[in-house]
Write a protein that binds this DNA or RNA. Sequence first.
DNA 1: CGAACATCCCTGGAGTGAAG
DNA 2: CTTCACTCCAGGGATGTTCG
Length: 329
Amino acid sequence: DLDAAKQQLEEFIPHVRNISDNSVRKMAGRDLARFKEFKKQGIAVKFGRFSKKENEQIRKNVEDFLSATGIDSAEKLLFTYRYPEDKGTIHRLKAKHLFCEKLSEGIPRPWRLIYYRARKMFDPNNYKGRYTDEEKEKLKKYHALHGNDWKKISEMMSRSNLSVAMKYSEIKSAVNYGPWSKEETRKLMNAVEEVIRKRLGTEEEDSHSLSEKSSEDLLVDREKLSEKLPWTEIEAKVGTRYWRQCKQKWNTVLINRLTKGQQLFRGTKGLQTKINLIKRLYEMDVEDPNDLNWEEFNNIIGDVPKAYVQGKLYKLKVSVPFWQKKTFS
DNA sequence: CGAACATCCCTGGAGTGAAG
DNA sequence: CTTCACTCCAGGGATGTTCG
């Protein structure tokens, strides 16, 4: 019946064949019935970032559950282990009032993702802004003491465990900051070329020495230049920078190459570009910024990387007064 | 004021372990 | 074995800051 489950799920989760048997079993038990119910109502299973509407729905579901059970805070509900004295009671209430079902009500996504999202939203240790230098030192010290026990460290730092784990991976080894040297940039470009070659399965690396690699014998689709690159591998090859720095630098290199001399965002041409962006946005008629389909912005500015369009659109967005208080539509 | 750089948050995949 | 609760990782995207 694992195969039967896969077959039924495939309709809702097209990539289900790539998911491990364990996860499929879980989804079959927990989500299949929900997905079918949504389908009856003509609602498709959703992926990608949660929209404002969905976040509101989660808030409502949590509030409803709290008032139904009398549990007095979302933190107690979602981080039960922080309240050892109430643990037994809360677990019983969760089971009795069908926590899983209620939490995911009205949201056409796999249960696990809704649960995970809710925990982030209601974790008082989350969304705490930038780390101070003292915090970074503390984090290093705690990691030296407790290793990868992120749960423990997160309690000690009053930051979410995801946040501390991520921050640590960023600061664990000393990296350079500030402008990239010519040498670093060259290393980065070599690294990217290497991984793309490897991916394409070209055996040329054996026959060509590094120095005689020329760019004209490698033609790849534009998307392959910036998407799904193995950044941790590239980080290792560059050696002096963190992978996110590498990703960003690569994007600026790519943008400069692809827009060379076009002055896309200056002068009257710049104004026209902005107008085009706004027009396209208007035509797309999306309710939520998280529902934007970046592919549809292709060729609005010119033949530029996705990251360029994303950056420009962001700048436009924040140039609207009080943009944070306004709805997208 | 835009480009470059820094650093935050999010997604979706996989995995674990306890309890029944 | 199933269900519930929790965790980690790799990569993508958003937002803040600095500088020429």
